[in-house]
């Protein structure tokens, strides 16, 4: 087992008066894709936002490469090499695709070769380079959101439901792109409801419910065990696609 790049130790998160996360323990091995599954409202998004520092953990610790990042603010966490693709994509619709991309490149002008590689992963980025990001379709916005996160090499990328509301064909091209991304050094934490995608991409898996991790293990093991899926999620993942 490779060393963990990210660990959550008994993380509790409150949003206003609501106690949302009740002691999340999670260990993400370096390299590959860690899936985070769970039914609606389980706390997946809250977990990612807590890692990013967008919500503050009220108890417990988030460690990145062994260093405690719990009390850092969001920009500092981001600059450690962690990128975030939020559930709502966080596109700046008032800016062009190009401007969205250049703002994400915090170390200076984007690298030409890397940009080419990204445009090959997501062709609409090239096609609509000068267009206002607000005019993109939902799928194209999703691609832009992922593309923006990888404009510079990152150690860890948190992606929240990149196939939400997308047509099957686009889901397929998104899956293909993430598969290629997986070939790089980057570690990916992926929240996903689409089980076909989860199975195609995931190396490890953690299942959440009610603000806790209720199962953690290999994706292949879970994919093979229909009874376990039934028990964890109250429905067979196979039926969920």
């Amino acid at each position: 087992m490779p060393e963990a790049i990210l660990t959550l130790d008994g993380v509790h998160t409150h949003i206003g008066p609501y106690h949302i996360l009740h002691g999340v323990d999670l260990s993400v091995p370096e390299g590959g894709v860690a899936m985070l599954l769970g039914r609606n409202g389980a706390g997946k998004t809250t977990t990612l936002r807590t890692i990013m520092g967008l919500w503050k953990a009220s108890r417990g610790a988030v460690r990145f490469r062994g260093k405690d990042i719990t009390s850092l603010d969001t920009p500092a966490i981001s600059r450690k090499g962690i990128a975030f693709v939020p559930e709502d994509m966080g596109i700046f619709t008032d800016l062009t695709v190009a401007e969205n991309m250049t703002l994400a490149a915090t170390r200076g002008a984007p690298d030409k070769r890397r940009l080419d590689w990204i445009c090959d992963l997501f062709p609409p980025i090239r096609t609509f380079w000068e267009s206002s990001a607000g005019t993109l379709s939902g799928g194209q916005k999703q691609m832009l959101s992922v593309a923006r996160a990888i404009i510079e090499p990152r150690d860890l990328i948190l992606i929240d439901e990149p196939t939400k509301g997308l047509a099957p064909a686009i889901i397929k091209s998104m899956t293909g792109a993430l598969k290629q991304l997986k070939e790089t050094e980057t570690t990916i934490v992926l929240v996903e409801q689409n089980f076909a995608m989860a199975r195609a991409l995931g190396d490890t898996v953690a299942v959440m419910d009610d603000g806790r991790i209720i199962h953690a293990g290999d994706m292949a093991a879970l994919a093979a065990d229909a009874a376990l899926q039934e028990r964890l999620m109250g429905l067979s993942l196979e039926a969920h696609q």
Partner: peptide, 15 residues
């Protein structure tokens, strides 16, 4: 301009 639209995302990009 990006911050006016979505300050959280600007922070998540490291600013």
């Amino acid at each position: 301009r990006a911050g006016v639209e979505n300050g959280e995302m600007v922070e998540a990009l490291g600013y």
